[in-house]
């Protein structure tokens, strides 16, 4: 199998972040820049390495569309045993996730990768669009938010995919295809500090690509964006009618914005021996179809 992994270096978000007013960029508050491989990219890499180890003759090739000096994610991949790493650069800088996807998709276009693995979203931009856009540009199928790979062989990927509220679904995808992974898809393997140091001394291959974006099928993306400190949206809360008498308004607030509990709603309290009580409880639950 031939596996491609897309990775990115991001700011360590365990440290407090701020938007620097002067530059409009995000930086750590009161400390030096601390970078790491994007955690879900790390899971994508780990899954690929596991698949390689399970399928003899496979290769894991790791790519990052990033500027010089942001190769931390690639070093990480080297240390973990990626077969090759490569930094992609576009002639004439175009920023934004669609162009990242374009760069990567172009790199993959003429090489037959069975599975392209990405993190499901980055800690920084959080747009979750690079994986799907690669799939769209290559006309590949996609599975996003994979939490577990059950099987990957004979041209098929069988995986669990995360839905909302903790639900998941089991899906089967024809290969070649794109999969994006959640952090929980795999725990990264341990690597010694020495090996990491060695990896850092490795020269990273750079590939220049020359692409005309206007010829590609990309979504529109704003030319300029402004980063600002978070300002939460106002959620509508219970507000007493300003025309009600003040005493009524205060009473409503004291009651927690709800009418005081009506006595009909709170039912009688049952007493008796445990047999009786558990049977009554069972009937209540049964009546309301909880069992």
């Amino acid at each position: 199998m031939k596996l491609a992994v897309c990775v990115k270096e991001v700011l360590d978000s365990r440290l407090p972040l701020q938007v620097v007013a002067q530059t409009g960029e995000v930086a750590h508050l009161g400390s030096e820049r601390v970078a790491l491989i994007n955690p879900s990219d790390r899971a994508a890499l780990e899954v690929s390495l596991i698949l390689r180890d399970q399928n003899p003759g496979s290769r894991v090739e790791v790519f990052s569309a990033c500027a010089a000096g942001e190769e931390d994610a690639l070093y990480f991949a080297v240390a973990r045993g990626a077969d090759s790493v490569e930094r992609l650069v576009q002639n004439g800088h175009l920023a934004g996730p669609p162009y990242t996807a374009l760069l990567l998709a172009n790199r993959f276009a003429n090489e037959k990768f069975d599975l392209i693995c990405c993190g499901d979203e980055t800690l920084d931009n959080s747009s979750a669009m690079v994986g799907p856009l690669i799939a769209e540009l290559l006309d590949y199928p996609q599975v996003t938010g994979v939490t577990k790979v059950r099987e990957c062989s004979r041209g098929k990927l069988l995986a669990e995919r995360s839905l909302d509220r903790g639900h998941r679904e089991l899906v089967e995808m024809e290969l070649p295809g794109v999969a994006t992974f959640k952090i929980e898809a795999a725990e990264p393997r341990y690597v010694s500090v020495r090996r990491l140091e060695q990896a850092r001394r490795r020269e990273i291959a750079v590939r220049q690509l020359d692409i005309e974006p206007s010829k590609s099928r990309l979504p529109g993306w704003p030319g300029s964006e402004k980063k600002v400190p978070p300002r939460a949206r106002v959620k509508k809360k219970f507000t007493p009618d300003a025309n009600l008498p003040p005493a009524e308004r205060v009473k409503m607030i004291m009651a927690g914005g709800m009418a005081p509990q009506q006595s009909s709603q709170s039912s009688a309290i049952l007493e008796g021996d445990p047999d009786y009580l558990s049977e009554q409880l069972f009937r209540f639950l049964r009546h309301h179809e909880f069992v």
Partner: peptide, 21 residues
């Protein structure tokens, strides 16, 4: 999960702008 799966590809295919999350 599904909205973010669908949104980028749909935007690309339709040539529409995309504003995520």
């Amino acid at each position: 999960a599904n909205g973010r799966d669908l949104g980028p590809r749909l935007a690309a295919r339709m040539g529409m702008g995309y504003a995520p999350h």
